[in-house]
Every structure is written in C-alpha cells, then in structure tokens.
Deep mutational scan, measured.
Amino acid sequence: YHADPSLVSFLTGLGCPNCIEYFTSQGLQSIYHLQNLTIEDLGALKIPEQYRMTIWRGLQDLK
C-alpha cells in the first residue's frame, strides 16, 4: 500500500514518519481513514507507545 501525501505530511509533521507503515500495512492510506481512531485503536495497530498520544492529539486537532 502507498500512503497518501496527506498521511505522510501529517505523520512527518508530528515527528512520526516511521509510523507510516503501521497504518498503510492495515490499509489505512489517508488521513481520512485515521480521523475516527481512538487511542485504543492506535494500540491495536501496534503503534509504538511513545507515539500514540502524539498521533492521537494530532488527530483531535484535525477535528
């Protein structure tokens, strides 16, 4: 799967570019796929713990 530029820029902007593959490997290719994820969902996606809160907060800021 290839990540949408919106996803790449979002995660890169948060300092988490190495997390892109965790999302794309589950078929979550764009920022729209991420918008309703919970902190528990990020854990289920195996996002490293040190990035989960950062990503979750970033998603809240998009709403």
Score class of each variant (00 low, 15 high):
Tyr1Leu: 14
Tyr1Gln: 04
Tyr1Met: 15
Tyr1Asp: 15
Tyr1Lys: 05
His2Thr: 15
His2Met: 15
Ala3Ile: 15
Ala3Leu: 15
Ala3Trp: 15
Asp4Tyr: 15
Pro5Gln: 10
Pro5Ser: 14
Pro5Ala: 14
Ser6Asn: 07
Ser6Glu: 14
Ser6Leu: 05
Leu7Asn: 00
Leu7Val: 08
Leu7Gly: 00
Leu7Pro: 01
Val8Ile: 08
Val8Glu: 15
Ser9Lys: 10
Ser9Ala: 06
Ser9Gln: 14
Ser9Arg: 13
Phe10Val: 02
Phe10Asp: 00
Phe10Glu: 00
Phe10His: 00
Leu11Val: 03
Leu11Asn: 00
Leu11His: 01
Leu11Ser: 00
Thr12Asn: 14
Gly13Arg: 11
Gly13Thr: 10
Gly13His: 14
Leu14Gly: 00
Leu14Pro: 00
Leu14Gln: 03
Leu14Met: 05
Leu14Phe: 02
Gly15Phe: 02
Gly15Tyr: 02
Gly15Asn: 11
Gly15Leu: 01
Gly15Glu: 06
Cys16Lys: 03
Cys16Tyr: 07
Cys16Arg: 02
Cys16Glu: 01
Pro17Gly: 10
Pro17Leu: 12
Pro17Ser: 11
Asn18Phe: 06
Asn18Pro: 03
Asn18Met: 05
Asn18Trp: 04
Asn18His: 13
Cys19Lys: 01
Cys19Asp: 01
Cys19Val: 13
Cys19Met: 13
Cys19Gln: 12
Cys19Tyr: 04
Ile20Cys: 07
Ile20Pro: 01
Glu21Pro: 08
Glu21Leu: 05
Glu21Trp: 07
Glu21Val: 10
Glu21Ala: 08
Glu21Thr: 08
Tyr22Leu: 11
Phe23Asn: 01
Phe23Pro: 00
Phe23Gly: 00
Thr24Trp: 04
Thr24Lys: 10
Thr24Leu: 09
Thr24Phe: 04
Thr24Ala: 10
Ser25Cys: 11
Ser25Glu: 14
Ser25Phe: 04
Ser25Ala: 12
Gln26Ile: 05
Gln26Gly: 09
Gln26Phe: 04
Gln26Lys: 12
Gln26Trp: 03
Gly27Ala: 03
Gly27His: 10
Gly27Ser: 07
Gly27Ile: 01
Leu28His: 14
Leu28Asp: 03
Gln29Ala: 09
Gln29Lys: 13
Gln29Ser: 13
Gln29Leu: 13
Gln29Tyr: 08
Gln29Asp: 14
Ser30Leu: 02
Ser30Gly: 07
Ser30Ala: 08
Ser30Gln: 14
Ile31Ala: 11
Ile31Asp: 03
Tyr32Met: 08
Tyr32Thr: 11
Tyr32Val: 15
Tyr32Ser: 14
Tyr32His: 14
His33Glu: 11
Leu34Gly: 02
Leu34Ser: 03
Leu34Lys: 01
Leu34Thr: 12
Leu34Asn: 02
Gln35Gly: 06
Gln35Phe: 05
Gln35Val: 13
Gln35Ala: 10
Asn36Thr: 09
Asn36Phe: 04
Asn36Pro: 08
Asn36Glu: 14
Asn36Asp: 14
Asn36His: 12
Leu37Thr: 09
Leu37Arg: 04
Leu37Asp: 01
Leu37Trp: 05
Leu37Val: 05
Leu37Ile: 08
Glu40His: 10
Glu40Phe: 02
Glu40Leu: 11
Asp41Pro: 00
Asp41Asn: 09
Leu42Thr: 02
Leu42Glu: 01
Leu42Ile: 04
Leu42Asp: 01
Leu42Lys: 02
Leu42Met: 07
Gly43Asn: 10
Gly43Tyr: 10
Ala44Tyr: 10
Ala44Ile: 04
Leu45Glu: 02
Leu45Asp: 01
Leu45Ile: 13
Lys46Pro: 11
Lys46Leu: 07
Lys46Asp: 05
Lys46Glu: 06
Ile47Phe: 03
Ile47Met: 06
Pro48Ser: 05
Pro48Trp: 00
Pro48Phe: 00
Glu49Ala: 11
Glu49Ser: 08
Glu49Val: 11
Glu49Lys: 10
Glu49Asp: 14
Gln50Leu: 09
Gln50His: 13
Gln50Asn: 11
Gln50Ala: 14
Tyr51Arg: 05
Tyr51Gln: 06
Tyr51Trp: 09
Tyr51His: 07
Tyr51Thr: 06
Arg52Pro: 01
Arg52His: 13
Arg52Glu: 07
Met53Pro: 08
Met53Thr: 11
Met53Gly: 09
Met53Tyr: 03
Met53Cys: 07
Thr54Ser: 09
Thr54Trp: 05
Thr54His: 13
Thr54Ile: 12
Thr54Asn: 04
Thr54Pro: 07
Thr54Tyr: 04
Thr54Gly: 07
Ile55His: 00
Ile55Asn: 02
Ile55Gln: 02
Ile55Met: 04
Ile55Gly: 00
Trp56Gln: 12
Trp56Ser: 11
Trp56Tyr: 12
Trp56Arg: 05
Trp56Thr: 14
Arg57Thr: 12
Arg57His: 11
Arg57Ile: 04
Arg57Trp: 06
Arg57Asn: 05
Gly58Lys: 11
Gly58Gln: 06
Gly58Trp: 00
Gly58His: 06
Leu59Val: 13
Leu59Phe: 08
Leu59Gln: 02
Leu59Arg: 01
Gln60Leu: 10
Gln60Met: 12
Gln60Arg: 12
Asp61Trp: 06
Asp61Val: 06
Asp61Phe: 02
Asp61Leu: 07
Leu62Glu: 10
Lys63Thr: 15
Lys63Ser: 11
Lys63His: 03
Lys63Arg: 05
Lys63Glu: 14
Lys63Asn: 04
